[in-house]
Amino acid sequence: MSDAVNAAPTAPRVSASNPLAEAWRTLRRRPDTVIAAAVLLFFAVMAAFPGLFTSTSPRTCPIREARTTPQGWGGDHPLGTDALGCDVLATLVHGVRPSLLLAVVVVGVSLLIGVTLGLLAGFYLGWVDYLVSRTVEVFLVIPLLLAALLVLSLFKGVDLGAGTFNVILLPAVVLILFGWMPYARYVRASTLEAKNLDYVTAARSLGASDLRVMVRHVLPNAIGTVTALLPTSVAGVISAEAVLSFLGIGVRPPATSWGIQIEQGSQWVLGGAPHILLAPLACLVATVLALVVLGDALRDALDPRLAA
């Protein structure tokens, strides 16, 4: 018998309306959510229209102006210049698109692969689980750099073009290849938990197909743990891309990205030009925090138990 400790918060409520409308009302009541949304919107606009934010080209890099300290708004280089004399603001603004696109593509595709495999493994167990689990372990063991080199040699000399999407293709492939495992593991674990719940059994006793049970009943209640993983994965992807660009399979010059900037800037932190690092790092941190807040809010809003 539960007592007041559990019983207290479940006062019956009378409001009953469209869950989406209710989700939106909940979102609005949380100011942190609004700020987070504004931050993301800001970067999205920046990615779509870099010209709005800077008129300087990130490719004009007079070496004599290298490591200029930030001059503030109105100056030639509001955020200073980097080690090669390129304008930090311009690089930053033009780096948004490949960085965010890469993050979204990598996280999205990894999630899709991971969730599907994890769900199948957890639901059917047996040989499906054996296959998926061993594959996950194999991929976890292979070092990322080794695999990156392999992919690099495979694609050597292949011209991928210079469109934004082509520019991120190689790092995306490598990062997806080595990024889906945590999702698969988490989803498998929560599927194991969710599939024995009474309401899943209830659906099966009604004669629901496996697909229906998985999609309607197991997945919605198993996905929660994974969504918590997403915002930090975005940060992980952006910084991993920087490492890859060292090997020449990152975002290819002349295109630029936050990852590359952070990588380069980190060498000058103690060399008298911390701004080269701090500017892109601040953007990355802001993006990740915004995603964390928004992710939390979205999860709460979509959970009818928490929608208040």
Binding site: Y199, A203, N221, D303, P304
Partner: peptide, 15 residues
């Protein structure tokens, strides 16, 4: 058809 024991776990909370 079946009626389950625990009314708290036998209904999908998201439906």
């Amino acid at each position: 058809q079946m009626v389950f024991q625990d009314p708290y776990t036998s209904l999908n909370p998201r439906m």
